[in-house]
């Protein structure tokens, strides 16, 4: 019998989107540039230009995807479990992953044909100057081999984008997947 456990389910978060109270309004210059950056990022990943993607990442990147847990009663909304992740990465480990994709990564060789649809984009000013909290929805369709069935996943992404050197760099991404049991058989694609 144990008195404490990090596997116990009390270390969990309530699902919440944008935190910032200082909204960057839809249609404003900054909003438009950030939206454009998200579209560019989706294209870069769909076109498998991983070096170009890495160039969009800040060196202090933290890239995570907590698991979801089905819960009931008073805890029913505390279903984002940050004690366990599907992705738990930083800039270095992302470089390891993209490096692998250029070699014998059979999970993506032959490559998946993917489409990343980014919608419901909300932007707010983050605490640090030149940093923006960006929440977006992701719909990812993935087609592998001759299999006519799509593998699909959906998620909310909570990002911090930093304006540096004339462009926006991703310094934080938390991917809130919508499945407790993923239907995608691996996450060899970035979300």
């Amino acid at each position: 019998m144990t008195d404490r456990s990090t596997a116990a389910v009390d270390k969990s978060g309530i699902m919440r989107g944008l935190v910032s109270r200082n909204r960057v309004p839809l249609g404003s210059e900054i909003y438009n540039r950030i939206l454009e950056t998200l579209y560019d990022e989706a294209a870069v990943l769909d076109e498998r230009r991983f070096d170009d993607w890495v160039a969009m990442l800040a060196p202090d990147l933290i890239y995570t995807a907590p698991i979801r847990l089905t819960r009931t009663g008073p805890n029913r909304d505390r279903d984002v479990m940050r004690t366990m992740m599907h992705f738990d990465d930083n800039y270095q480990s992302i470089l390891m992953r993209t490096g692998r994709l250029s070699k014998s990564a059979w999970a993506e060789d032959p490559p998946s044909r993917t489409r990343r649809f980014i919608t419901n984009v909300r932007v707010g000013e983050a605490e640090a100057p030149d940093e923006y909290e960006v929440v977006s929805y992701l719909y990812l369709s993935r087609s592998r081999g001759e299999n006519p069935e799509y593998e699909i996943t959906t998620a909310e992404r909570r990002d911090i984008w930093r304006f540096a050197g004339g462009s926006y760099k991703l310094s934080r991404r938390e991917i809130i997947l919508d499945q407790a049991t993923l239907s995608m058989s691996n996450l060899a694609v970035f979300l």
Partner: peptide, 11 residues
């Protein structure tokens, strides 16, 4: 010690 609830996915 289990560090968190298990990852679950379909193959």
């Amino acid at each position: 010690e289990l560090l968190g609830p298990p990852q679950r996915f379909m193959i």
